[in-house]
């Protein structure tokens, strides 16, 4: 059964332990001769959702590809340590990384049906992921499990969708298949690259709510890139703001929204505050105080950031020194 992950702890319990630690990650684009990622760092605990916020071109998706070690051919890694559960990923061979991807960490890519192999059915593509890691299991067994995964991801009529080709799926449905592919082997760390961009708001809410509930249930960690402050505020525990390849601020989500320090973070949040002020006037809306008692569990006291570039302003809240 897919849902029985050995490490799953009931949601809400303060399960933790660092699962990923990245320090001094620098990626260099050979053709454009610039740093795509410049000295990035992070620490992610089990069950934590880290939101990497930045605008287009900030390097946020390159960061994810750097962590999962699938770089474009024009990009080379200049420096950096990536430790997954204490194991050094940089020391792993390509073959070992291929095994690790899917089983331990997997990426949810955006693009809906354009990110699915157009000539094979949705179901067979999930089976492909499973078979890559469990080559000895029977075809029938894997197909059954794939259908089960589709059901867990919240896809109605999973056995019909199993046989559907990507072009027969709606955008929301195709995106759920991509989530299913990433979650097929129950990896402990997911990397989500702006995967709800382009979905309509009602569908986005449906997909994200269900996905978020699954993460909590399985105590799975997620690093999610986004440029949407609503997504960051609603689903993330920790926020890292990235601009021109550099992390400019890193903070627990409550602290970040209440007390942004870097001028760039403030700029991003000013628009949100304006929108929020307007929304406060929406009388028909019942906005409920969220239970934030759990949120303190992801405060990182020992972030691997160079002390000469970052200032600690509160527990787990780092700000990069500004150039000016």
């Amino acid at each position: 059964m897919v849902t029985e992950t050995p490490d799953a702890t009931p949601a809400g319990s303060t399960a933790s332990g660092e699962i990923l630690r990245v320090s001094d990650l620098t990626l260099h684009h050979l053709v454009e001769d610039r740093l795509v990622i410049d000295g990035a760092f992070m620490s992610v605990d089990s069950g934590e959702v880290l939101g990497v916020m930045g605008e287009s071109g900030s390097g946020k998706s390159a960061l994810l590809f750097g962590i999962i070690r699938l770089l474009l051919r024009e990009v080379e890694q200049r420096s950096g340590r990536i430790a997954y559960r204490g194991e050094d990923l940089m020391a792993k061979s390509n073959r070992q990384m291929e095994q690790l991807r899917g089983l331990e960490m997997a990426m949810i890519v955006p693009g809906g049906k354009f990110s699915l192999n157009p000539v094979e059915t949705a179901g067979s593509q999930i089976v492909d992921v499973l078979r890559s890691h469990f080559p000895d299991r029977s075809k029938k067994d894997l197909a059954d499990e794939a259908i089960e995964i589709l059901r867990i991801i919240g896809i109605p009529d999973p056995d019909i969708r199993f046989r559907a080709y990507p072009h027969e799926l709606s955008g929301g449905m195709a995106q759920r298949i991509l989530i299913a592919k990433a979650m097929a082997c129950s990896p402990q760390l997911l990397l989500g690259d702006e995967f709800t961009v382009g979905l309509d708001v009602t569908i986005q809410a449906q997909v994200m709510d269900h996905f978020h509930a699954l993460l909590r249930e399985r105590n799975t960690s997620l690093i999610l890139t986004t440029s949407d402050l609503g997504i960051a505020a609603t689903y993330c525990d920790t926020i890292a703001v990235i601009r021109r390849g550099q992390i400019v601020e890193y903070a627990p989500v409550l602290d970040f929204f209440a007390n942004p320090q870097h001028s760039y973070s403030r700029l991003l949040l000013s628009a949100a505050r304006e929108a929020r002020a307007q929304q406060k006037m929406d009388e028909a809306r019942v906005d409920v105080e969220r239970d934030t008692s759990q949120d303190r569990r992801f405060v990182h006291e020992d972030l691997p950031a160079p002390p000469d570039l970052y200032t600690l302003v509160a527990p787990g809240h780092l700000v990069r020194l500004e150039d000016e």
């Binding site: 609603t234 929204f257 809306r285 906005d287 105080e289």
Partner: peptide, 24 residues
């Protein structure tokens, strides 16, 4: 349903949503 699906840029509050079943 549409307007309540907009996510609030505020981690302290959560929103009552009218949820539609299925897809368009």
């Amino acid at each position: 349903a549409l307007l309540s699906s907009v996510l609030l840029p505020d981690p302290k509050t959560t929103r009552q949503r009218l949820r539609l079943s299925g897809e368009i």
